[in-house]
Amino acid sequence: MEVRVQNIRKEFSRFPALNDVSLDIRSGELIALLGPSGSGKTTLLRLIAGLESPTEGTVYFGNEDASRKTVQQRNIGFVFQHYALFRHMTVLDNVSFGLTIRPAGRRPSKADIRKRALELLDLVQLSGLEKRYPAQLSGGQRQRVALARAMAVEPNVLLLDEPFGALDAQVRKELRRWLREIHDRTGHTTVFVTHDQDEALELADRVVVMSKGKIEQIGTPDEIYDTPNSPFVFGFIGQSNILPVRVENGQLWLDDRSIGVSATGEADGPAQLYFRPHDIELLDGCGGCIAGIVTVTRRVAGTRHVELDIGATHSKVEIELPPEKVTSDHSRIAFRPTRWKLFRN
């Protein structure tokens, strides 16, 4: 189901947690709310769920105003970071809970509930564990039960609050792919909150980057990574270098030398140059370049990270090189950014 958030404001005892946030979620979409802690992403998720009520603004499910409905009436599926499984119930009872508590008129028969719960357990690859208690499961298994439980009620929208936050790195990666598969098979409109950019970029159809109670940028993972529209998004997503430069006649200048990058159409004046460590090319001579002395090199998986000292007044610059390119400390390297962005204050 389509979900629209319109001009939502939320204050917690006068402290604004969300400030005029609007967001359209298309039916069947997998959306990530990404941001540092305190950015309001969890608050937004809980507002959609109905676990919080907005100070101002409206949430629509389809064409219906959902803000007037309680969390029970909204028919959503919510998955908590720490699972929140009912510890005194078996896995099967946990998954069936949403159906068994329905009033007699809307409740499927016992056999149907059991069948549906077993199907869901099969979907989340936990067949055979239906008689276990949550305490007898691993973290990853518990989160799958929580997901099956949320899907049992055929929710309008599936909301996940840092679903993999409490799991270790390996399990997290596995579950990420698996969640994408489940989503593609079931087609639920899904919103999940994460502070892990890899998770958001790998998993989501669209990523919503949030900061300080506002949406900074909404876009596909490619758009977010390749064309960040604010210094915050550039700095928050991926690695980045920031240098204070000067624009003069369509050329970029660092201190008193040109760095060999033309910025046609940019107005003259000071600006901040943002570029990623891998978006560079090495140069032999230096007709126009950024040059620096190698201070530290680190081998990280398939690349070599090189830290350069480009002059005492600037912070260190990090670039990524192919691992076969061996650089010794104190050697001199010249490069120029191939893909970059300018931001002005």
């Binding site: 769920a49 109905g50 676990l51 969390v71 029970q72 028919n75 959503i76 599926g77 919510f78 908590f80 720490h82 929140a84 499984l85 009912f86 005194h88 809970f97 949403g98 508590i101 329905r102 929580a146 439980r149 949320a150 049992a152 009620v153």
Partner: peptide
Amino acid sequence: SDEEAALSLGASGWQTFWYVTLP
């Protein structure tokens, strides 16, 4: 969060207390 989970699954306040909080 256990109570919130029950509510999100459609349980009434009384059902939440009886099936989740009390146990």
